[in-house]
Write a protein that binds this DNA or RNA. Structure first.
Length: 362
DNA sequence: TAATCGTGGTA
DNA sequence: TTACCAAGATT
């Protein structure tokens, strides 16, 4: 039991990690732990799928409230499938990567209408569904069905790159890492628990900046730790620095029957913030828009006042968004459009950048 | 293969 | 402030 592990012995690595998971693994809202299973609790594939979609590139604390809210509002895949898409998008607002929400809704409709509400167990059948790629298909197989799978997320990439001290930088090393990860995953029983365990190890012990190697169940097998170079792995290519884009948006309010209202519009279907609500405004360009372009983008001719500037960071550029505000005179209905009660702005489903702009206008 | 696609937390 | 990071998928 105290014998040193070897990274060329996948069976013992697998067993050691499972033993660690039984003691130290996290309890997460969507997770069925071994002791839960012993009490007869079974995973709900719909709830598992929902969690995996929300957790793509997203932290547990950020995703968790959304997961609870979605399950409460739409308890089954049929409920979600029959919900209006604008309701789903609004409920997703603030989580980011909005293509996930569009794909999630499309996936729910396929599962509800074509698959009788049952998620597939087959890897290729899962991967064929919208929003489900290689990682998520394996994660659903493992967490929902306890079927053989190899999950490789950012956590696992880090753990495996350190264990084998892989010199190839990401993302080129993905194939090599996947192969190594699959070898260990396939070398034991309890595939569902193993998948959770290897991700937990990366999330709580083998962390990016300050790994807790002293308590790691794989310490005695880890090549990077032997070299005292844990945080040098995984190797990564340098990232490009983000360009800046500039834009102007318009915060127009009027007096409605139930109080003040704000003018919004829906963004185009695809692309950045696709299908989400926004304040009307100019395009976001590398050069600040000129006066003519700004005037042409205003929803109405008015005495626009400068309300301030929103700075927001997207995945591949930074945005500096000037907010201009105006209030229509009493009795002036203003332009056609989606007027939203200011008192219910949170339910309007604004993405974070637009919520910042909306607040700045008051 | 490389770009695109959010957000909030942390060092 | 800047840079990095978090249960990736799609085109």
């Amino acid at each position: 039991m105290t014998n040193a592990l070897s990274r060329s012995d996948p069976g013992r690595l697998n067993a050691a990690l499972l033993a660690w998971y039984d003691r130290q693994g996290r309890a997460l809202p969507w997770r069925v732990r071994p002791e839960d299973r012993a009490r007869g609790v079974k995973a709900d594939p719909y709830a598992v799928w929902l969690s995996e979609i929300m957790l793509q590139q997203t932290t547990v604390p950020h995703a968790a409230p959304y997961w609870h809210a979605f399950l409460q509002r739409w308890p089954t895949v049929h409920d979600l499938a029959s919900a209006p898409r604008e309701d789903v998008m609004a409920a997703w607002a603030g989580l980011g990567y909005y293509a996930r929400a569009r794909n999630m809704h499309a996936c729910a409709r396929v599962v509800s209408e074509e698959l009788g509400g049952e998620f597939p167990r087959d890897l290729d059948a899962l991967r064929a569904l919208p929003g489900i790629g290689d990682y998520t298909a394996n994660a659903i197989r493992a967490a929902a069905f306890d079927l053989p799978a190899s999950v490789v997320d950012g956590n696992v990439e880090r753990v495996v790159a350190r264990l084998f001290r892989i010199e190839t930088p990401l993302p080129r090393a993905k194939a090599e890492i996947k192969a190594a990860a699959a070898g260990i995953a396939a070398s034991g029983a309890r595939p569902g628990d193993y998948a959770q365990a290897v991700m937990d190890l990366g999330a709580t012990v083998c962390t990016p900046r300050s790994p807790a190697c002293g308590i790691c169940p794989w310490r005695s097998a880890c090549a990077a730790c032997d070299a005292g170079a844990q945080t040098d792995y995984p190797r990564k290519e340098r990232k490009k620095q983000k360009p800046v884009r500039y834009g102007v948006c318009f915060h127009l309010t009027r007096d409605g029957p139930g109080g003040a209202e704000l003018l919004l519009r829906r963004r185009p279907e695809a692309g950045l913030l696709g299908a989400m609500m926004e304040l009307p405004g100019t395009d976001w360009t590398e050069e600040a828009p000129v006066a003519e372009a700004i005037a042409a983008s205003a929803p109405v001719g008015a005495d626009w006042q400068e309300a301030g500037r929103v700075r927001h960071v997207f995945t591949h550029f930074r945005l500096e968004l000037d907010v201009r505000t105006a209030r229509l005179a009493a009795g002036d209905a203003g332009p056609q459009g989606r007027w939203v009660s200011v008192g219910a702005l949170k339910q309007a489903g604004l993405p974070s950048v637009m919520m910042k702009a909306a607040k700045l206008g008051f």
